[in-house]
């Protein structure tokens, strides 16, 4: 999967550049608020699925990045939601450090093109680069964010 193909999974309207949350629960809720109307069934199912995934083991890896992910009947197409917190979120990350960058990958059960795991793998691989993470932290708007993802 190329950077350009990965970028197609992001919807500019869903990106959050100024996440207010300080805890894991707040962060997941604030992000899911973008994807589905709060108090809707789809919101409830997606949030529950993401919480279940966190029970399996935190998706907050190292270097201030988290990749909450999963499949749900409430999701109609594969998508990635980007969120950023300047102050950082207590996300039970593996290194115990606050999490600043979130890539929430949501997939429907019937992902016939089977892009879900390749997309997750590409995201994890892309974000290893220290300079790239610095650029994502500094991106002022979606266009700058998109350029970083597309070029990798």
């Amino acid at each position: 999967m190329t950077g350009a193909e990965l970028l197609q999974l992001f919807d500019p309207k869903l990106c959050v550049f100024d996440l207010k949350a300080t805890t894991k629960d707040e962060a997941l809720r604030e992000i899911v608020d973008r994807v589905a109307a709060p108090d809707s069934r789809n919101h409830k199912f997606i949030l529950e699925m993401l919480h279940n995934r966190e029970h399996l083991g935190s998706t907050g890896v190292v270097k201030g990045v988290a990749f909450p992910h999963g499949r749900s009947l409430a999701v109609s197409k594969l998508m990635v939601v980007f969120a950023r917190s300047a102050a950082g979120v207590r996300f039970e990350s593996m290194d115990g450090e606050p999490t600043h960058l979130f890539f929430v990958l949501l997939a429907p059960p019937q992902d016939r093109a089977n892009q879900y795991l390749p997309a997750l793998g590409k995201l994890v691989e892309t974000i290893q680069d220290d300079r790239l993470r610095d650029r994502l932290m500094a991106a002022a708007a979606f266009e700058e964010f998109a350029a970083v993802i597309r070029d990798n």
Partner: peptide, 14 residues
């Protein structure tokens, strides 16, 4: 990919 997937029993409980 670096994910912790060790608590499958938690999902079984859920």
């Amino acid at each position: 990919m670096g994910f912790d997937v060790s608590n499958l029993e938690e999902l079984q409980k859920a």
